[in-house]
């Protein structure tokens, strides 16, 4: 569909976006900037999914990670007290240990890639994947799917309990919160 050179260009754009975003997340000294840089990473990854013909996954990546996770991270950041000092809020622990970890992990990843895939493969054909995913989730993988649902539910309840305990404190003026829809 899309001509090959354009395709390549777009691929490198997406990959670069993901990579650059990742670097920014790691190296930004301002924690809010780091959080916003995640956006670039997520967008790049979504683009890569699209290249792999995983259209559903790409869109869900955007929806869940950008619309949900990222916003929650930002929320959490902005609601912390002492956020005034956020300008330099991401201190580096040390360059040497960081570099060691970086090299080790990179080596591992490269090794795994080469060992497992070794060379290139053709892209899968661009077919809709939604129906397949739905079928798989509700037949073959129904148990993991449900287990994850239960886990998420538990997390949700836990969050509500923690937040609720804090909120139910009477307001400073002794005026109870109004129970009105």
């Amino acid at each position: 569909m899309i001509p090959e050179p354009v395709r390549a260009l777009l691929f490198y754009l997406c990959a670069g976006l993901a990579l650059a975003g990742g670097c920014w997340v790691a190296f930004a000294r301002n924690i809010v900037h780091s959080a916003f840089a995640l956006l670039a990473t997520f967008a790049g990854v979504a683009g890569l999914y699209a290249f792999l013909s995983a259209d559903f996954l790409a869109v869900v990546q955007l929806m869940i990670y950008v619309g949900g996770v990222l916003v929650l991270i930002l929320f959490a950041l902005m609601l912390t007290s002492r956020i005034e000092e956020a300008r330099v809020s991401n201190p580096t622990i040390g360059l040497v240990p960081g570099a060691v970890v970086l090299i080790a992990v990179s080596a591992l990843l490269v090794y795994a890639c080469v060992k497992e895939f070794g060379g290139t493969t053709d892209l899968p054909p661009g077919e809709p994947t939604t129906a397949g995913i739905g079928d798989a989730l509700l037949s073959r993988y129904v148990l993991p799917f449900e287990v994850i649902s239960v886990l998420l539910l538990a997390v949700l309840l836990g969050a509500v309990t923690i937040a609720g305990g804090r909120l139910r404190k009477p307001a400073p003026g002794g005026k109870p919160g109004k129970e009105r829809p």
Binding site: F56, L62, M63, G67, V71
Partner: peptide
């Protein structure tokens, strides 16, 4: 193929 999901997803950029 995922048009309507895409609509929901892309508008979430606005929040950010």
């Amino acid at each position: 193929n995922v048009g309507i999901l895409y609509l929901l997803a892309i508008t979430s950029l606005v929040v950010v």
